[in-house]
């Protein structure tokens, strides 16, 4: 009697390739992470292996040190990057200078709020960030309660690829520390969200009050226990007395 399969039926995929099924040329793909922190490393590699191209990549940084999303730039599969910070990402700078890639820079808070709006059914919003700067150019500006605001549009995506510490089979997610960053918001903004899980657990193993991202926002899960997790800037202190 239940002949139609719902979107939340059997989410766990047994391979990265299967988890990326339907990710096609020309799509907009959001990828979580703050620089190399909290990257879905296997899914990022999987998109290159899949051969999808002409992608619009939405991510805060688009990789670093030749790692993470820099591999997409090197593979030549990205036509446009929507980000907030390029920094010293030479892979991005060189392609920008050569004109082979288009880059749209957003203030970081605006970037993530555009995602949040897309996921929450809000087509546009007003923000004070960027008023009186180049960010304002070409956008509607409105005065509300005596202050000027810029109208920014929602930013949806075809796919979101995110990494999480612990995921149950329904797709309830827990992140670890600052690896959370954009990931749960991207998950709300995409038509298909794929989670790369460090640890895959049975339903019930995560207390409902401890869920960071409810499974309604997750469509596919792939279990990937091993990660490189590069550190961009290793800053440490000496232990007092040099004791271990």
């Amino acid at each position: 009697m239940f002949s139609v399969q719902g979107r939340h039926h059997h989410k766990v995929r047994d391979s990265v390739a299967a988890a990326l099924d339907g990710l096609e040329d020309g799509m907009t793909v959001m990828v979580g992470g703050f620089g190399l922190c909290g990257n879905a490393e296997a899914l990022i590699a999987g998109v290159v292996a899949r051969g999808a191209k002409d992608l619009t990549l939405v991510s805060n940084n688009a990789g670093a040190m030749g790692k993470g999303l820099a591999t997409w730039l090197r593979a030549g599969i990205v036509k446009k990057v929507v980000c907030s910070y390029l920094g010293t990402n030479e892979d991005l700078h060189s392609r920008m200078a050569a004109g082979t890639i288009q880059v749209e820079v957003n203030p970081q808070g605006t970037l993530v709020e555009r995602m949040r709006a897309a996921g929450a059914g809000i087509p546009a919003f007003y923000t004070p960030t960027g008023v009186g700067t180049v960010v304002e150019e070409g956008k509607e500006v409105k005065e509300l309660d005596g202050r000027r605001y810029i109208m920014e549009r929602a930013l949806p995506a075809d796919f979101a690829l995110v990494r999480a510490r612990k995921v149950d089979r329904f797709g309830n997610v827990r992140f670890f520390r600052t690896a959370r960053n954009f990931s749960p918001v991207m998950a709300t903004a995409a038509r298909t969200t794929v989670v790369e899980a460090d640890e895959l657990v049975d339903v019930g193993a995560i207390d409902p009050d401890d869920v960071h991202l409810p499974g309604i926002y997750v469509h596919r899960i792939v279990h990937v226990p091993e990660h490189e997790d590069p550190i961009e800037f290793r800053t440490v202190r000496k232990r007092p007395g040099g004791a271990a």
């Binding site: 703050f34 620089g35 190399l36 922190c37 909290g38 805060n60 670093a64 970081q108 808070g109 993530v112 709020e113 995602m115 949040r116 992140f175 670890f176 520390r177 600052t178 690896a179 959370r180 960053n181 954009f182 990931s183 749960p184 918001v185 960071h212 997790d229 590069p230 550190i231 961009e232 800037f233 290793r234 800053t235 440490v236």
Partner: peptide
Amino acid sequence: PQLINAGKQTVTVLPGGSTFDSA
């Protein structure tokens, strides 16, 4: 590697600290 500041430097979190998403 999953506990960094906005400059992407490794840091710590103090008792009473909290983590949250970018939004």
